[in-house]
Amino acid sequence: MAHGEEVGLITYLQVNRAFLAPVIERAVARLGLGDRRRVLDVGTGAGGGLVALARATGPAGRVLAVDRSEDALALARRHAATEGVIDRVRFEAADLLTVASQAAAGERFDAIWAGDVIWPGNVPAPQRAVAQLADALAPGGVLALFTSNYYNATFLPGHPRLERQLMTASELNWGIPADGPDHYARHVHWMHDAGLTDVRLHVLPRTGFPVDQDPTVRAYLESIVWPELLGAARTKGREAGMSSEDLELAEALLRPGGPKYIADEPGYYLVHPALLVTGTR
């Protein structure tokens, strides 16, 4: 990984972790982990779910945090230490599916948390990945798939057509399937297909209004969302149906400090309708 890419990844992980922290706290609280002793956090990233998981399991619980990126694990380790839960966590640089396969053949987990990781591009076949995670659960174990639901968020209130175009350009830029069994919105289906029972869907909105009431909101928009959407517009905007006027408007609305900057409008808000899907083995 080049230095610039490494810095970009670290910034992304830290900013994303801070923005999503409140909704992840609420999501983990719904899992009832008080009597769970062996918990797996797959694709832990910067440890966005790790601290909440470690605290929810209580003093006797232990969390295995897995990620392929050593840089991400270093962030997660520092975060766990700062938050006082480092003694309840073990870290492992590994592929999540490898860990799941090993657990299925040995000691299974009481709960598995997968936060924004079961996604086209992250895993070659999301449906099969969920089935492998389900196989890694002990009887009565719970699988939790969390998604921030980025592509269903409202970032440009009052500009729905432009927002749809930008989201389409982003999907095209990342090569995300337009529909079908591997589409990112199929979490509930994957849980059913894996044979899990008591499958439940929870909608946990993350909002931002007023924009500067919470310092993580503007940081999230300006460090992650706007660069991602504008980058996609420049490379795939035409393919997504954007005209020259659409591209100019996007540049104007998403340029911090500009006269039309959308986040400086007095009524600006964002809504992230995050989803938590749970199922029991």
Rank of each mutant, 00 (worst) to 15 (best):
P124K: 11
A129P: 13
D110I: 04
N152D: 14
P126D: 07
P139D: 01
W113L: 08
Q127I: 03
P124R: 08
L156I: 08
V142K: 07
F109I: 07
T154L: 10
N122C: 15
V130H: 02
D116S: 12
V142P: 00
A111K: 02
A153N: 10
I118G: 02
A136I: 11
A125Y: 06
N149P: 07
D110M: 06
V123H: 11
A104H: 04
A153R: 08
W113V: 03
G141S: 06
G115C: 14
P157V: 06
N122G: 12
N152H: 15
P157L: 04
A129L: 07
D135V: 00
L137S: 14
Q132N: 08
E107L: 01
A131F: 03
N122Q: 14
A129C: 07
A136L: 11
W119I: 11
T147W: 13
W119D: 13
D110Y: 06
V117T: 15
A111L: 03
Q132F: 02
F109W: 14
D135Q: 15
D116R: 09
N152M: 11
I118P: 08
G115M: 09
T154A: 04
N122T: 10
Q132D: 12
G121F: 05
W113C: 10
D110G: 15
Q127C: 13
F146A: 12
P139R: 06
G141K: 13
F155K: 13
N122V: 09
F109C: 01
A111C: 14
P120V: 06
I112E: 01
A136W: 08
V123G: 03
P157T: 03
P157D: 01
G121T: 09
